[in-house]
Amino acid sequence: MEIKDIIKEENLVYSKTKLLTDTTLTYCPGCGHGVAHRLLMEVIEEMNIREDTIGISPVGCSVFAYDFMDIDMAQAAHGRAPAVATGIKRCWPDKFVFTYQGDGDLAAIGTAETIHACNRGENFTIIFINNGIYGMTGGQMAPTTLPGMKSSTTPFGRDVSLMGNPIKITELVAQLPGTYFVSRQAVHKPANVRKAKKAIRTAFEVQQQKKGLSFVEIVSNCNSNWKMTPIQSNQWMEENMFPYYPIGDIKIEGKLIKTN
């Protein structure tokens, strides 16, 4: 069978979802944001909730998420996405609300908003992209930077005695009674992408059942600021990020299943 016989409308099994606009993503080549955006939009398309979903974009690399996601979006001040989401969700309890935040946004300047939204058990979804660095501003040290990891403000590696330990914000919020589903995933390999999509789908279903806050962390790369190629950065992430940020579900149906 010739290739041109295969390429027909009826044989199409996968293409970019219509919920992503045709705007070219502003992310660097190989960045995990692109896959995370697409998974989120695929889940919304599959659940058929496009008209009922409101997203909150953060400050950081994904600040232009509203240009890429063809749904209703709002833009929050740095770190304040959970506070804005709380307001929107309380006004429209039947809408689906999610925030999309990076580690500098969620785990540094927005720690108070994140922890209190999780503790109150607000009924929305937080998607947290953790690449261990402030990507947009030039690779400065973030709270999630690993010990010994080089960044533009820690050129000799993060010194734990001087700069403290990286924060495991996902384990932290899993301890709070308001969270119902907490999971950590990655999007660097096909198997991980499929698992991450399942986790995002579960997160939105929890919201549909009004059970509490659902929190999905996606461990991602930042090849530009890690000064690596995309493939090298994914390997580095597997070798260094995953031992500290282990992949898997942390809290399911309100019960902690993993403590580390």
């Binding site: 027909k8 044989n11 970019k16 896959v35 697409r38 390999k189």
Partner: peptide
């Protein structure tokens, strides 16, 4: 599914 920019269509 791993393409960050979603440029690949599969038949």
């Amino acid at each position: 599914i791993v393409c960050p920019d979603g440029v690949i269509s599969v038949y």
